[in-house]
Nucleic acid binder design. Structure first.
Length: 118
RNA sequence: CCAGACGGUCGGACGGCCGCCGGCGGAAACGCUGGAGGAAAGUCCGGGCUCCACGGGAAUACGGUGCCGGCUAACGGCCGGCGGGGGCGACCCCAGGGAAAGUGCCACAGAAAGCAAACCGCCCGGCCUCGGCCUCAUCAGCCUGCCGGGUAAGGGUGAAAGGGUGCGGUAAGAGCGCACCGCGCCCGCGGCAACGCGGGUGGCAGGGUAAACCCCACCGGGAGCAAGACCGAAUAGGGGUGGCCGGCAUGGGCCGCAAGGCCGCAUGCCAGGGGCAUUCCCGCUCCGUCACCUGGGUUGGUCGCGUGAGGUGCAGCGCGAGUUGCAUCCCAGAGGAAUGGCCGUCCCAUGCCGCAAGGCGCGGACAGAACCCGGCUUACAGACCGUCUGGCGCU
RNA sequence: UGGGGGAUAGUUUAGCGGUAGAACUCCCGGCUCUGACCCGGGCAGCCUUGGUUCGAAUCCAGGUCCCCCAG
């Protein structure tokens, strides 16, 4: 049986293992925006998301907040745009926690657009 | 009213829409319900819990603690007291046992840095050879010089110089004598004690440093929830049973005519290496190979995993830390890990514009549970409450 | 989570409780026609806050940061 049943089928699978993050970083594409860095790797399977916040951007509270805002932005964006077959990693930057949410969302849309032609 | 001391509480509020994690109900859709902190932090102490080692004793080593009494499951924590230091005061701070067990160190300066001595001095006595003063000259005297002795008041060095201040005393001095202060010892009283108070006595002995080694007293097994338990599929390593396993002596058995050889079969003795902090005594345990049998790690799942040294209220006892009784409540828990996003009104802080009303903008202290609990330490915008101190003013 | 170590000049590093040193760098001067080498001189430092001590880079405690090890 799966580790835990996804109650929401529309909430995408999460990347959890270090190896998965490393694979995306090593083999995928990368786009930088003021609010985030987006990494993408075509896999052909279901869409999967990973979130990264390093110690460089702040203490635990700041890192948590940055990651949650990225999650919210991603949730809203991918509800509108169905994309399959890609692993995305959203990396928080110093500005992520403080940037206005509308700008952060625009950063994400921009980044997906630019990285789009896989 | 101003300045301050101490203790405590809170640490944005309300609402709407869309979401996240857990629980309950449901076939599902979905509904209901719970969802970070005082420090969740640092990981500095103490425990619970779990596994391992668990044999006892003695000594040693190592680490920690260190005024007294109490609280506590325990503590290096807390409370109360004592002593010392600071502050006008409320109050604050203190690793605060032992320096007459021993060792070490005390740079530079200074005569001398720990055992008593004496550099410049002061004083006494002696020698007068040379020199100087005095004298007409000599002697005597004085200065200087040399020798012997007495001193530690003064000078100077230092963080520190063998009690301090004053009076007496003396050749000069000195606890040499006296008074007060300090210190040691003895006695009495108060206190459970640390200690305090009083009296007597000694004539000053015993410099500092133990956050230098050390001594004394007390405490201390190791590891940690990735501990650990259970469930489930394939390959190398574990467990049990049996056989074979080191040397020597004696006996025995077998082969051989014999010399001799083989067999640990029996008894006894001696062994090697590793582990149990070290040493010692006894003690325990493990070791290599073959055959057969049979259970378990890693990845995954379940449990551990929140009813607890628990929170709140009231009452009793206690100065207090706390403790006892009654009532009442169930209050996040999961995996790399959930509590977020947007909007509105208000509150707070702040920037700009404005005479003002107000407008525009930006931002809400420190910080995020990872087995749990008791402390400590550190971070923290601002607000509030209580007690107290000093000052000013009024009645 | 547990354990261990470290922080000294811009860099790499010495440093028995009393002096903070060395090398490279940098600056100035000299040598040279010029540069390098070389020679002489100079600037600059004990992570932070308290405490012990007459005196602390050194000893003790709290804090900050960094590194390493085990799982």
């Amino acid at each position: 049986m799966p580790a835990r049943a996804r109650t929401k089928t529309l909430s995408p699978l999460r990347l959890k293992r270090r190896a998965e993050f490393l694979a995306v970083a090593a083999k995928g594409r990368k786009v930088q925006r003021p609010g985030l860095v987006l990494q993408a790797l075509a896999t052909g399977g279901e869409i999967r998301l990973g979130f990264t916040a390093t110690r460089k951007i702040g203490n635990a509270v700041v890192r948590n907040r940055a990651r949650r805002r990225l999650k919210e932005a991603a949730r809203l964006f991918f509800a509108e745009h169905r994309i399959e077959g890609v692993d995305f990693v959203l990396v928080a930057r110093r500005q992520t926690a403080g940037r206005r949410f509308a700008l952060l969302s625009a950063d994400l849309a921009d980044a997906v657009e630019k990285i789009g032609p896989r």
